[in-house]
Structure formats: structure tokens, C-alpha cells
Design a protein around this nucleic acid. Structure first.
Lengths: 193, 193
DNA sequence: TTCATTTTTTAACTTAAGTGAATGAACAAA
DNA sequence: TTTGTTCATTCACTTAAGTTAAAAAATGAA
């Protein structure tokens, strides 16, 4: 099971056997049932999550409505926010499906960082990469219509629509469920897809 | 002049005199004329910028049109993307006004990191904080109308509208200049502001 | 299976952004 | 000063999303 985690990390830097062993010893892999809420808004952040199997969703609640801010799956493996030492979560995170994830923990992370200083560099690279990706997504979002956003999602994350309720996709795209339904109809008719 | 930089860094961690001296020795403060293009899309990233005085703007060009992705001023002091070792810029960066900025440099940064390992931690904290902020902005953007975005910008970055051409603000808000003009008229009439 | 709940679709209507075109204002260069 | 350019505003028209409401379909639990 830890192999998923090794593969992920080794995209950025090779791991020594000693490091791998240390990671296994951390015992950070957990299973959660569909619907489990991993993080509540305002919680002290416990570290990052990495999805090994399943799907997590981050969202916030505005005027009683859930606004989905992200979906995290095997192919989009990394997660919400690492967070400074005592920062608080801005979003909820819940399981869209039964999921297996690695779960961070601040003490453990600190300890590991001290033992393997290379991991700090690793976190920096990952964080910068996430930032860069997010800036790019934001720019794309600004400069496209809801329909284009839907088509992009279909292209870039095929399968997500099969796994996630449509109204959650809609709020992720920044539109109402009715509009998404309309868009799907339009797209189907025009054979744009 | 370096004091701006010290103040910025010391928001995150206190600096020793030795570190301060090392920073001064780096000699990384530069002035640029309004209109100067600091980064072109596709350039190898040279490191971060920090605005001491003036205003930078990041943008990309889609179908011949400039799409503004960010404004960086004294109050929003930090910048585009640090970038992995050989990553390339996704955006242009230019000076909206005559500006004084600190300019990174990869060799220098690497050297400084080695001499002062604490700086790696600093970069990690900054990067995570930027990521967090950006995730929050993105979520807000998704869940608000163009008019609300305009009002938010007016509230959160007063003065920006006086410093930057309106059509650049418009593309930053993800709308056309005509729409921004309409929104301003609407807002002025309804006394929403 | 049945019933209740959630999710998705459809429709009529309202609202606001996009488009294309024209005008006026501000600004810089010759 | 004149000229050309860029920028902001306005208008008429088109397009699509929001809103409200209702119905249909899918899902899950008793």
C-alpha cells in the first residue's frame, strides 16, 4: 500500500531504503467510509492528505449551500492545504467514496523533517508546484465560459462526472445545477463532444 | 531600502545580523521603468520578485488579448511563481508603474539556501501561505458575480483602480471592459458604494 | 417492494454579460 | 496645435446563466 506514496514522492526525488522504512514506520495510511468528514472548517490543520484510492472533496458552506472547491482522486493525488503550524482549515474535506488516504500529523511531520531534512525541500517543491497549477487553473477559469469549463473538466478529468453527483460538479464549476443540466443538453445536441 | 525586504521576511521569522548582512551583500534591489517587461512567457524562471515600490502585473496572452492574472503592489508584496529549477514562466510580468523590486536569481538562491538552511523553511511557509490565499481567492471568485468581484476588489485593494487602466482590471475580474463600465455605472447609481 | 429523499431535468421568466459599433475623452508624439 | 492612439462609455442586440417552480428519475432505507 505504501508503494503509492513512494511512487508519488519519487516523482520528485528518489528515496533511500532507510527513508522508505521510516515512512512505513509512520503508519499513516487510513481507510474512511463514504461520507466521512475528515476536516471541518476551522479545525487546526493536521497536515496534508494523499489519496491512494477513492475520492475526497473540499468545500465551504456559504449561506447554507455547499460550494465545492476541489476534488482529489488517485490521478490528482495531492491535497488541500499543508498549513502553517497553527493555521486553521478554510474548507471542509469529506469522502465522496470509500477512500484510502495517507494522513499527516504535525508532530510526526516535524520529527520526520528533522530526521530527513531533504523532505523540507520536497515539500517546498510540491507546494510551489501546487501553487503554480492553481494559478494556472484560476487564470483558465477566469477566461472561459461555464460551457468551456465543463468541456475542459470532461477532457482533463474524465470519469469524475461518473463518480460525483452533478450538483457538486456544478458548484465546482461555479454554476447552478440547472445550468449544468442545460449545458449538458446543449453539448449533447451540438455534438461538441 | 533593504528594510522593506527585512520587514517582509521578519513577518515569518526574525533575522540575525549576519543574515541581514548576507542579504544586503546579495545586491538584489533593482529599479524598472513603467512598461518594462520583467518576464516573458516561456522564460526560465529566475526566482521570485518582491515589490518594494510600484506595481507589477502578470498576464498571459490568449488569442492576441492580454488576460491579467495578478497585480502586485507594496501591500500585496509577493509575486508570481518561484518555480522548480528549470521550470518556465506561464505568464508575462510587466511594470504598471516605475517600480523598485527585489530580483531573485537561481544560483544566488541556491547558495543562500545552503549557507542559511532556515531560508528553505521560510520559502516553504511563504509558498504554502500563497497557495492557501490563492485557493481562497479562487473559491471566492467562483461563488460571486462580476459585480460582487468588483466591489470586493474595491474594498480589498482600494487605490488599485486609480493606478491601473480599467481594461486591465476588467480582464483581472474575468469580464469585458464594457461590462466593467456598466457595472461601475450601476453601482454608482444604486449607491451600493 | 414501497416510501421518502435526493438528484436531475425541464420550463417560463428575469437579469446581466458578450458582441459589434460608434462616440467621446485622455494622452503622447510629431 | 494637430494627429493618431489608447481608453472609457454608451447603445442595440444576442446569448446564456440565475430564479422559481414542478416533474421525473435515481437512490437508499425500512
Amino acid at each position: 500500500m505504501e508503494n503509492y506514496l513512494f511512487d508519488f514522492i519519487e516523482q520528485y526525488m528518489p528515496l533511500t531504503e532507510e527513508e522508505k522504512k521510516a515512512i512505513v514506520d509512520l503508519d499513516i495510511i487510513r481507510s474512511f467510509k463514504k461520507g466521512t468528514i475528515l476536516v471541518k472548517e476551522g479545525d487546526i490543520i493536521k497536515g496534508g492528505y494523499l489519496v491512494i484510492k477513492g475520492c475526497l472533496r473540499s468545500y465551504c458552506i456559504v449561506d447554507g449551500e455547499e460550494k465545492t472547491t476541489g476534488f482529489y482522486t488517485e490521478t490528482v493525488p495531492i491535497v488541500p492545504v499543508f498549513g502553517a503550524d497553527d493555521s486553521r482549515a478554510a474548507h471542509f474535506v469529506s469522502c465522496v467514496e470509500d477512500s484510502i488516504v495517507t494522513v499527516g500529523n504535525p508532530d510526526m511531520e516535524k520529527e520526520t523533517m528533522e530526521k530527513f531534512p531533504r523532505f523540507e525541500k520536497l515539500c517546498l517543491i510540491i507546494s510551489e508546484q501546487l501553487l503554480e497549477k492553481n494559478l494556472a487553473s484560476f487564470a483558465d477559469f477566469k477566461n472561459s465560459t461555464p460551457e468551456q469549463r465543463y468541456l475542459d473538466l470532461l477532457k482533463n478529468r474524465p470519469g469524475l462526472l461518473q463518480r460525483v453527483p452533478q450538483h457538486q460538479i456544478a458548484s465546482y464549476l461555479g454554476i447552478k445545477p440547472q445550468s449544468l443540466s442545460r449545458i449538458r443538453k446543449r453539448v449533447a445536441q451540438n455534438g461538441t463532444v
